[in-house]
Design a protein around this nucleic acid. Structure first.
Lengths: 291, 291
DNA sequence: ACAAAAGTGTTTCGACTACACCCATGG
DNA sequence: CCATGGGTGTAGTCGAAACACTTTTGT
């Protein structure tokens, strides 16, 4: 049995969340865990990232451990088993620019087109809706689908990325499914797309109560930058004026005193205010999607 | 390297949440993962529970993977490494009664006395507060402690069980810490207490948006039973009249039509209503706190 | 001037809280 | 009839959503 670590390395540029993939068929950077070398799994993950990408890690957290047999379709009966621990890693824009050869940043919505609801209408989203809500699908699955894809009066829950992916997988809507009826989004090797789905869901949730967006932003930013980054991750548009107020009230940022020119009125420049960590237990960016 | 599974098996009786421990120095039921035998980690966990305890599993979820070297203090330099995947398992009261020999149910507040805030005053809680908030402790740690133990104007967050345990560990407040200055709560073997802390935090959080409390209750129960169970897990008292309304509004339960005698007015008997799962995306029991 | 983006003020709305009180039973 | 727990009604509170509006720049 081999224990490997798979890293979902995320960065945001131009309001586009991106995942680092290694060249060829898209797959996540990964490496075997060698107990003799690393004292902890987290250190092993850090080493893996440094050695394979040279990137400076901003934030790192364990996601889940995936141990199903035949995760890798090439795995043969009686062959060695692969268990992998997934990690979510955030990298700042500046650091991300220094990506080495052999790896590529890919828009995460390339893998999950239906997760981007920022622009209405959203054809990629609607196509998936039509697929999962088709009259022909099994009633039980269809009801679950309508729920988790926000087709009932309950609204869209942007954190349920994994649930939606798994439903789509069950319905044969992704190329890696056993019986494929359609293929939405780009595929990845093995079960890496599932790991990325887990990462997106976790990140979307965590933003709300931990100040981790700032790991993805430069040290100085405008509230529009912040809003754009949050929107890109959340896959939803937010109400500008209210967003600014909510953020300012939490004390999670402070003005630098500078201003940055725009095509309209110049914007105040802000920086993250680390003191919040000592003031409030769960400092984050509250987000509620707009209809 | 050995991959093992550790199970935190939880059940509630008499408004006391209990964890299944194997006899001797308290430790969690655990077993080595044998890839040839089990197709998935989850199946391995189920097998482990069945073989070691014979209990009927109500709900099961993966918690976290713990891979630090010297998790086991007996581990020797250069010796085999132990990586373990923690699982949270819920068992109903009725099923729990059939616990076999060699294992024992232990009140989880025996391991985390400071987590029970149901009765005021709470001496066990206050003792820990005095310890972590002592003038002598390092200012940075102390500020973190004041936050996470609810001593600032921010209130107690009942989900932050692991954070509190780790802080206490750092301050030498638990027997298993490297430099012990005090010993709050019963200790467990290896890092099992950390795993239980993770489980409690996860369970306290999950109750709010998944109907998993019902895995711990008998099929028919009164709203007081439900409230008492939730309170015992959450470690906090809830406002009765409001609790009942909130629960009824969600449609998560329905009346059976029966009544149960009490020392006062007889109580209506309810059952879980599985249809909620098809109606609302995140059906749970709202407890005052975060989403 | 006017387009474009930043930023402010005010009202509305709804979820939860708190408090006061009534109900049904056993002793 | 009164103690005990079950159960209901209703006003207050607070945070966030919605909407209308002003400010500051570039062209």
């Amino acid at each position: 049995m081999r224990l490997v670590i798979d890293a979902v390395i995320v960065s945001v540029a131009d309001e586009t969340p991106r995942v680092l993939t290694v060249a060829g068929a898209p797959r996540l950077p990964s490496g075997t865990f060698v107990p003799e070398r690393d004292r902890t799994l987290e250190l092993a993950a850090r080493r893996l990232i440094t050695e394979q990408t040279g990137l400076r890690v901003g934030y790192l957290e364990q996601l889940y451990t995936f141990g199903d047999r035949f995760r890798d379709p090439r795995e043969v009966e009686g062959g060695p088993r692969l268990v992998s621990v997934g990690y979510l890693v955030l990298v700042g824009v500046d650091a991300a620019a220094a990506a080495p050869a052999g790896v590529a940043w890919r828009d995460w919505y390339g893998f999950f087109p239906w997760e981007d609801l920022r622009d209405q209408p959203a054809p990629a989203h609607d196509a998936v809706l039509a697929f999962v809500d088709a009259p022909a699908v099994d009633p039980t699955l269809r009801r679950r689908a309508r729920l988790v894809f926000g087709l009932t009066d309950a609204d869209w829950n942007n954190e349920a990325v994994l649930e939606r992916y798994e439903l789509l997988y069950e319905l044969g809507g992704v190329a890696e499914a056993p019986h494929t009826a359609a293929s939405f989004g780009d595929s990845m090797e093995r079960d890496h797309r599932r790991i990325v789905a887990t990462a997106i869901g976790r990140l979307r949730g965590k933003i709300k109560y931990r100040p981790i967006v700032f790991e993805l932003l430069p040290p100085a930013f405008t509230l529009s930058d912040l809003q754009g980054t949050v929107e890109s991750l959340a896959g939803v548009r937010l109400h500008g004026p209210n967003f600014r107020r909510l953020v300012e009230e939490t004390g999670i940022v402070e003005e630098t005193g500078e201003r940055r020119p725009t095509s309209g009125r110049p914007a105040k420049v802000y920086r993250f205010r680390p003191e919040v960590l000592a003031e409030r237990p769960d400092p984050g960016i509250g987000i509620r999607g707009r209809p």
